[in-house]
């Protein structure tokens, strides 16, 4: 069936001010992204609408919102030709500061708990290299591109419902560092992810892997950590 191009898009935006307008008709153009919708609303209809963005090219992870219930980067999510209406909400599981802006502190608190940086082992040659064709590199590389946008956190049924859980992003970061033979904090991280709010709290909803704008697989990282914490590592 041929797509029918709509002249306007009806955008419903979750607003934190009860009296603020929530529905906007935006003239469409091609190609159009969700961020274009928000910018058009702000320029032409309501200056007070609040949202974050920065790089506009899916690199900075700043503009994450829920589009029709699903976390996505506003700047890389297209508004397709046949779309009549779009519903925009702030990320789930994080306190709303205003409209589509959330306080990322809970996300960063979890991130910090896995010691998200390399702790160099003593006695390494400089520069310590992981060979490009090694098994270790193959394990690490697919999970390195996290831009900490929080889409996985928002789409996780456990994190987003306010349960204590390290969350998919922090666990993916932990997996990368646990797999890294140059790192000295492996045992400490495996202990952190093995606690009651660690990997066992994942229910394999796969929301994280489904929405990651960089195509990462946090659910796969969690499965790997579940195996490794029993055997002490990869």
């Amino acid at each position: 069936m041929a797509e029918v191009e709509q002249a306007t898009v009806s955008v419903r935006v979750a607003r934190s001010d009860a009296g603020a307008e929530t529905t906007f008709e935006v003239e469409r153009f091609e190609p159009m992204t969700v961020l274009d919708l928000l910018l058009a609303i702000q320029r032409e209809q309501d200056l007070s609408i609040a949202f974050r963005f920065s790089c506009r090219v899916g690199m900075c992870g700043t503009c994450t919102v829920r589009v029709d219930g699903r976390a996505a980067l506003a700047c890389t999510t297209p508004v397709e030709r046949d779309v009549r209406d779009v519903r925009l909400e702030p990320m789930a599981g994080l306190p709303v500061v205003r409209d589509l802006i959330v306080d990322m502190a809970p996300f960063w608190d979890e991130w910090a708990r896995v010691t998200p940086y390399l702790v160099p082992r003593a006695g390494l040659d400089e520069p310590a290299v992981i060979e490009p064709d090694s098994e270790e590199r193959r394990r690490i590389d697919p999970s390195l591109d996290c831009i900490t946008c929080g889409a996985c956190y928002s789409s996780c049924g456990v994190s987003a419902s306010g349960r204590d859980f390290l969350g998919p992003a922090a666990l993916t970061r932990a997996m990368v560092l646990v797999a890294d033979s140059r790192d000295a904090a492996r045992d400490e991280r495996l202990r952190a992810v093995g606690q009651s709010d660690g990997v066992d709290r994942c229910r394999y909803i796969y929301g994280c892997s489904a929405v990651c704008p960089k195509g990462l697989d946090p659910a796969g990282a969690i499965r790997a950590l579940r195996r490794w914490r029993l055997g002490g590592g990869p």
Binding site: V67, D68, R70, A71, V83, G93, S155, G157, S161, G207
Partner: peptide, 15 residues
């Protein structure tokens, strides 16, 4: 209240 949610919208059905 959480991401995804039980929202059966046209956008959800299209995806």
């Amino acid at each position: 209240r959480s991401g995804g949610g039980p929202h059966v919208t046209s956008g959800f059905l299209r995806r």
